[in-house]
Amino acid sequence: MAEKTKKKKLSASKSKTLILLSMVMPGAIWFLLLRYLPMAGIILAFKDYKVYTKAPSFWNNLMHSKWVGLKNFKFLFATNDSWVYIKNTIGYNVLWIILGLVVSVAFAIILNEITQKFVAKAYQTMMFFPYFLSWVVASYFVLAFLDPTRGLLTHWMSAHGMTPIQWYSEPKYWPYILTICNVWKNTGYSTILYLAAITGIDASQYEAASIDGATKWQQIRYVTLPHLRTMICILLIMNVGKIFNSDFGLFYTVPLNSGSLYSATQVIDTYVYRVMTSTNNIGMSTAAGLLQNLVGFVCIITANKVVQKIDEDSSLF
């Protein structure tokens, strides 16, 4: 009898395992085909990739292309503009990580304080909607305001006796414009994540704080923010890992690829794209992507170690 019971439990365990594996399998196959297998192409970063007309297959081209070592990496640091786009990439990311954290947490707390569910859901939808728009669509929204002849701001400035600004030829305004665009598009997504964490806080803790005489600000400080610490640290670590990357769509389409704005809008991704299209050198773009991922990996490990020293429970791994 005991043996039959044991066999039934083993069979049930195997059945449950198969069900769980079948659920995981589509995602595992997706990662294998689209994330792990393409990693073999990293070798392109160390070769001068050429297309051979006699047998123009990828593997034949790859095997017969000349090995150039680290030559493809040098172009990132070989020009006078290297410091400009590296500074822009890191500077924008640092600013947006800090600003995105503050704004997202603030909006999440505000939305949580709205008592009318319909109003709260409406605000959530309006904030989350821009996240699904492409930067091409967003660039037309920006153009509607900044167009030098028909833009809303241009007409407003003319109507008030001011000289219209040529936005698409003045680099000094674009750090602010790009920051506003980034916050407008991405804040909603982060806000939803923080709001989900807030709604998971036990309501009895707020009741206890209220009974003890805590004001609303004190409840936020001593109840809400401590419970958000883990979520903040995890998202912060993940964002630090992308500090050497940039949103290509934002920096390429919103400024309309204006050459006069490169001092403010040129970042690593747009620079690599422009070099690759002019030289048709795939090895250079692969080298840039590999370097960005290596720097991101180091940043994630470093940030995680720092968080572990401060609060081990809030670390990513």
Rank of each mutant, 00 (worst) to 15 (best):
S258D: 08
G241W: 05
N257M: 13
D269R: 05
L228M: 01
M238G: 03
L256M: 10
F248C: 02
P226I: 14
Y273M: 04
M231H: 04
L250Y: 02
P226H: 09
Q266K: 15
I234L: 08
T224D: 04
S246T: 02
R229C: 01
Y252Q: 07
F248A: 01
N245F: 12
N245M: 09
R274D: 08
S263L: 15
I243S: 04
H227A: 13
T230A: 14
R274E: 01
L261W: 08
G259D: 14
V272G: 05
M238S: 12
T270V: 07
C233R: 05
I268Y: 07
H227D: 04
F251D: 12
V240H: 05
R274C: 09
Y271E: 06
H227N: 15
L261E: 11
K242S: 06
S263C: 08
V254P: 10
L250P: 02
I232K: 02
L250I: 03
Y252T: 02
I237S: 08
F244N: 00
S263D: 14
C233M: 14
I243L: 15
P255T: 12
T253M: 08
V240D: 03
V240N: 07
F248W: 10
Y252K: 09
P255C: 12
L261A: 05
L225W: 04
K242G: 03
S258L: 09
I234H: 08
R229L: 00
T270I: 10
G259L: 14
G241V: 14
S258M: 14
M238H: 06
L256A: 01
S246D: 02
S263W: 13
G259Q: 13
T253C: 06
L261S: 00
L228A: 03
H227E: 05
V240C: 13
L250G: 02
T224R: 03
V275N: 04
I237W: 07
L228C: 12
C233F: 00
Y252C: 09
T253Y: 06
G241I: 08
F251R: 03
R274P: 02
P226Y: 07
V272D: 05
D269T: 13
K242T: 13
L250R: 14
I268N: 07
T265M: 06
T253A: 10
S260A: 14
M238L: 15
G249P: 04
M276G: 09
L225Q: 00
I232Q: 10
V240R: 09
T265G: 07
K242C: 05
T265Y: 12
S260L: 12
L261Y: 06
L236T: 15
N245V: 07
T224I: 06
V267K: 12
G259T: 15
L236A: 13
Y252W: 04
M238F: 03
V275K: 09
I232W: 03
F248H: 06
N257G: 08
L225A: 11
I237D: 00
M238K: 14
L256D: 02
M231V: 15
R274Q: 12
